[in-house]
Write a protein that binds this DNA or RNA. Structure first.
Lengths: 337, 337
DNA sequence: CTTGCTTGCTCAATCGATTGCGCAAGCATT
DNA sequence: AATGCTTGCGCAATCGATTGAGCAAGCAAG
C-alpha cells in the first residue's frame, strides 16, 4: 500500500542508476567501485552518479560482484566456542584485523564437533572465502586437505596441524613461567618447596602436553621431581577436575597448576569444600585469563595468551608466498597477581 | 608443477560436471540442488552426476546461486562484544538456531561503536542478508530504517528499538526478583532490613532504567524507601563502580544490586579493600551470570537472561507476517547461590 | 495412422557487477 | 586534408547457478 516502501521493493542496481543518470551500467559500476579514473570517466559524470546513488540508497550486490571478480575478500574463521575470554578475544581481534585489511570476516562456531567443523569449512568454501583460519580445531588437517583441493589458503591458530602453517602460543615457556611463579609464591608464603599438582586437560592434546613439559622443566630447575600421580590430565571439565582432586590427600596439595579457566571452576569448587586448615594453604596459577578468576585470593597468577600478536602473525603469514606447514610460537604474557 | 593440485586450480563448476557426465548444466544443477525429481531427471542420470560431483569435490558457488535466487538464506547479527557470557551465549544460540533452520548465520561484532554498527549492517545488506538481528545496538532505529528501505527483515534483541519488533528480557521482573532475594538474605544473615545500593549502568539506558524500576518495586513491597543517592548509575565500567562505591560510607552499605558482571568486577575489587569488619557484612546479587562470579562467597544470586528463549522467540517472529514494532518480554532465570 | 500424454532432457534468459575492447569526438601536428 | 593522440564513454561477454519453456522419443488409445 505504501508505494515506495513496499517490502518487495527491488533493490536499486547499477542499471537503475544508469537509467536515472542517463549513462551506461559500466560507467556507473566504475564510478561506484572507484575504478573510474582508470577508465577515464569525467569528474562531472562521476559526481552525478554518486549523487543519485546516494539518493537511492544504493549498495552493491556483493554476490554479483564476487561472482565476477577473482577474489571474494571473505576470510573465514572456525572457532569452537564463545564461552571464555580467550576465544572471545580471538573472535574480536580477528574481526578487527580483517576489517583493517579490507576483508569481510565470517566466524562460525562449531561447538568442538569435528563434523560440524568440516561442514562449516565447506560452507565457507561455497561462499568463496579466500582464506580459512581454523582455531582450536579438533581435526585441522581434514580442513587443510579440503582447502588445498579448493586452492584456498588455510592457517591453524591455537592448535597446530601438520598440513598448514600454524600459529600457536608458546605453551612450554608459558607453563614454565607460571610453574616458577607458583613455586616461588608457595616458598615465600609457606616456606614450602614441594612439587605442584597439574590439573586439567588431556595428555593427548598438543597444548596440554606442551604445558606439562614446561611444568616439568620448571620443577627440574629447582631439583624437584614430579611423580606421575601429580599430573591429573582428567579433561577440561570442572566436575572432572573436582572429582580428581577430591581423590587426593589434601595434605599433599599445596600448589596447583590449573590448565584452563574451565578447569579452574572445578578447582575453586573443590577448594571451597576443604577445611579451612587446608584451604588457606592452597595456592594456584592458571593457564588463560579471566577477570573474576584474577580476583580470587588463592590465585597467584594467570597466563594470558597474546591473542593480538597471534592474529597479526596469522594475517601476515597469509600474504606471504607459502611457508609450508611450519609452526610459529607466540610468547605468552604472565600476569602476576 | 604439481599439475592437478595447482594453487590456481579452478573450482569445478556444474559445466565441468556436465561435460564429464555428458549432459547439460541444467540437469547437473537440478540434481545437485535436489530439484531433479520435479524436473523429471532419471534416477540413472542423477546417480551418475552425484558420483562425479563427489569425485571432483564439487561444492556450489553460493555467490552465483544466491545471485540467481530471490532469497540468500543468510541471516546477519550485529553484536557489541564477545567479552562476557551473555553475548557469548547469544552468539552461540543464534548460530545454532540459524543452522537448524537451514540458514547461514553471519555475526559481526561492532565494539559498541554506532558507526561501525551501521557500516556492518550495510555490509550485511550488500551480502543480501534476508534478515538482520541487532543485539544490544546503540542505535537500533538507524539500522531499522536502513533495513526497511532495502525491504529486509529486522529484529532487535536485548535492547528495544521503536522501528522494529524487539525481543528483550523482562528486566523489571528480573530485577525485582533479585532485589527480593538480596533483601531476604541480608535479613536472614544479619537481621537487617535496609535499602540496598544499586550500582552500575546508565540511567538513560533502557535496561538500566527498567532494572531500577524493579529494584524500587521490591523495596516498596517491604515498605522501604530508597533515597536517590543509593542509585549509582555511574556507567558499567569496573573502575567507575569502584570509585563511586568508595565515596560512600561503608557502614551504610549492606546489600548491593550489581547491574552487570563488568560492574561486579569493580564491586569485588572495592570490597577487597574494605576492612574485614565491613567486608564480611557485604552481600550482593548481580544481573547476568558468570561462572566465577557465582563462586564468590558474598554473592547471593545472579539473574541469568534466557538467551535460548529470546532467540527462539526472535526466529519465530521472523516468519510471521509483520508485527509492527511491538516488544516481547522474556522472563529471566534467577539463580540463587 | 493420428492424436495426446508422459518421460527425460536441453535451451537460453536471467540475476548484478566487472572489464577488455572499441568507437567517436576533439584537438594538435605535419 | 590527413594522421595520430587523448578524452570520455558504451558494448557485450563473463562469472556460475537457476528455471520457465520447449522439444523429441516412446507409448497407448482411438
Amino acid at each position: 500500500m505504501s508505494g515506495k516502501n513496499e517490502i518487495s521493493a527491488k533493490r536499486t542496481t547499477i542499471y537503475d542508476i544508469a537509467t536515472l543518470t542517463d549513462t551506461s551500467a559500466s560507467a556507473v559500476s566504475s564510478v561506484l567501485n572507484g575504478s573510474w579514473k582508470k577508465r577515464r570517466i569525467s569528474q562531472k559524470l562521476a559526481d552525478r552518479v554518486l549523487r543519485v546513488a546516494e539518493q537511492q540508497g544504493y549498495s552493491v550486490n556483493l554476490q554479483a560482484s564476487v561472482l565476477r571478480r577473482e577474489r571474494s575478500n571473505i576470510i573465514g574463521m572456525i572457532i569452537p566456542k564463545y564461552d571464555n575470554r580467550y576465544f572471545g578475544a580471538i573472535a574480536e581481534k580477528f574481526e578487527q584485523a580483517a576489517r583493517i585489511r579490507g576483508l569481510f570476516p565470517v566466524i562460525t562456531c562449531t561447538q568442538r564437533d569435528p563434523d560440524l567443523e568440516f561442514e562449516a569449512a565447506k560452507e565457507l568454501l561455497s561462499y568463496q572465502a579466500d582464506c580459512i583460519i581454523s582455531t582450536g580445531a579438533t581435526d585441522p588437517d581434514r580442513i587443510s586437505t579440503l582447502c588445498a583441493a579448493a586452492g584456498v589458503k588455510n592457517i591453524n591458530v591455537d592448535l597446530p596441524g601438520s598440513k598448514a602453517m600454524s600459529v600457536i602460543s608458546d605453551n612450554v615457556a608459558g607453563a614454565r613461567d607460571l610453574t616458577r611463579l607458583i613455586l616461588e609464591r608457595c616458598k615465600a608464603e609457606f616456606g614450602i618447596c614441594a612439587p605442584l599438582t597439574f590439573v586439567g586437560g588431556r595428555a593427548s592434546d598438543h597444548n596440554t602436553s606442551a604445558r606439562i613439559k614446561g611444568f616439568l622443566e620448571a620443577h627440574a630447575e629447582c631439583g624437584l621431581e614430579v611423580s606421575q600421580d601429580r599430573i591429573l590430565a582428567c579433561g577440561y571439565a570442572a566436575e572432572k577436575a573436582e572429582s580428581a582432586l577430591s581423590k587426593l590427600d589434601p595434605d599433599q596439595i599445596g600448589g596447583l597448576f590449573v590448565n584452563s579457566t574451565i578447569t579452574l571452576e572445578g578447582v575453586v569448587t573443590w577448594a571451597k569444600g576443604l577445611s579451612p586448615e587446608y584451604r588457606t594453604k592452597i595456592r594456584y596459577g592458571c593457564f588463560d585469563w579471566d577477570p573474576f578468576a584474577a580476583l580470587l585470593s588463592a590465585n597467584v597468577g594467570m597466563v594470558q595468551q597474546d591473542v593480538a600478536r597471534m592474529l597479526e602473525t596469522a594475517f601476515d603469514a597469509m600474504n606471504e608466498p607459502e611457508q609450508g606447514n611450519q609452526t610459529i610460537l607466540v610468547p605468552c604474557i604472565l600476569k602476576e597477581l
